[in-house]
Design a protein around this nucleic acid. Structure first.
Lengths: 157, 157
DNA sequence: CCTGCTGTTGCAAGCCGTTGCAATAAGTGC
DNA sequence: GCACTTATTGCAACGGCTTGCAACAGCAGG
């Protein structure tokens, strides 16, 4: 059954592929395709790439009010193993999921305005390679959250 | 200066200076010196510099079983404003407090063995200044936690 | 010592996540 | 279609931390 592709958001951004084969990917690992997982995938496919755990739960409830948090979080763990989502913690320590990361990247969080920005491999390169060579430490960039004050919130002009 | 070595944990080495004037510092701000705060200061003065929120609560309870979490966390907030403690979040998002940070530093967390290391201004310098000049972003080093795999846990030998 | 102002506390409740466990239901083979 | 294996679910309870609120108690001042 392929009833007209599942459109991503509503603003014509394509997205197509990634979600189509999730079911098969699960099966390939002996995992199952359940109604609850369908709902979660539906929610994620509509996200813009960054969501908190609580947001995901809430959106799932919009589709199926019976949604249980434990199921959602456990499924997110599974999807993380499949590489479909990736999680990190915001400046307040809460979970933030990154959906379909197109590239490995971390985040910058302004402690004042709460705005966030992505920081890519290039910007992190110096630090990452320094830690790698000096300490043998392999940074998990996708889990990296750097807190601080953004340009607009730095008091010092 | 301040040779002092400041012997960290265990033995009853009473960390003279910093704690002595906490009471006055509070008073100077119109804040109060209460039994509960006395207990918390007692606990912090015995810490080796890194404790989780839950640990602090538990240790306070060792001294006064009636200790309430809300009081502890609220007082830690106050002490953070006084610059006596500083908090960050571990790889799991839980709070970690740095007591009397002698220097600004962040932390490295191994996702496998859970070990942690400090990372100082020198190591972070490249990244900090890059973010500062390219984005105007002022990194709060003391809040920085970098997750990844340490030398001993990196699979790839 | 007594009084009053207001910083603090403790409680109750709540939010975000996690976990143990028994019941349920995908997916497989016949 | 029908067992059967076992991945998955939902529940209930808990851990860490926060918040609203009424009662309490530092600490000047008289």
């Amino acid at each position: 059954m392929q009833p007209n592709g599942s459109p991503p958001a509503s603003n014509g951004v394509p997205e197509a592929a990634p979600w189509a084969d999730v079911r098969e990917r699960l099966h390939a690992r002996g995992l199952r395709w359940t109604p609850q997982r369908r709902v979660l995938i539906e929610v994620l496919s509509r996200s813009d790439g960054h969501v908190t755990g609580a947001e995901v739960v809430e959106r799932c409830r919009d589709i199926d009010p019976a949604t249980t948090p434990s199921t959602v979080y456990r499924t997110l763990d599974v999807l993380e193993e499949l590489g479909i989502v990736r999680h990190a913690h915001g400046a307040d320590g809460r979970e933030e999921f990154h959906v379909l990361p197109k590239s490995d990247h971390g985040h910058l969080h302004c402690l004042v305005c709460r705005e966030t920005w992505e920081i890519g491999t290039v910007e992190a390169a110096a630090m990452v390679s320094a830690l790698r060579s000096e300490r043998g430490f392999a940074v998990e960039l996708s889990h990296l959250s750097i807190a601080g004050l953004c340009r607009d919130c730095v008091p010092d002009a």
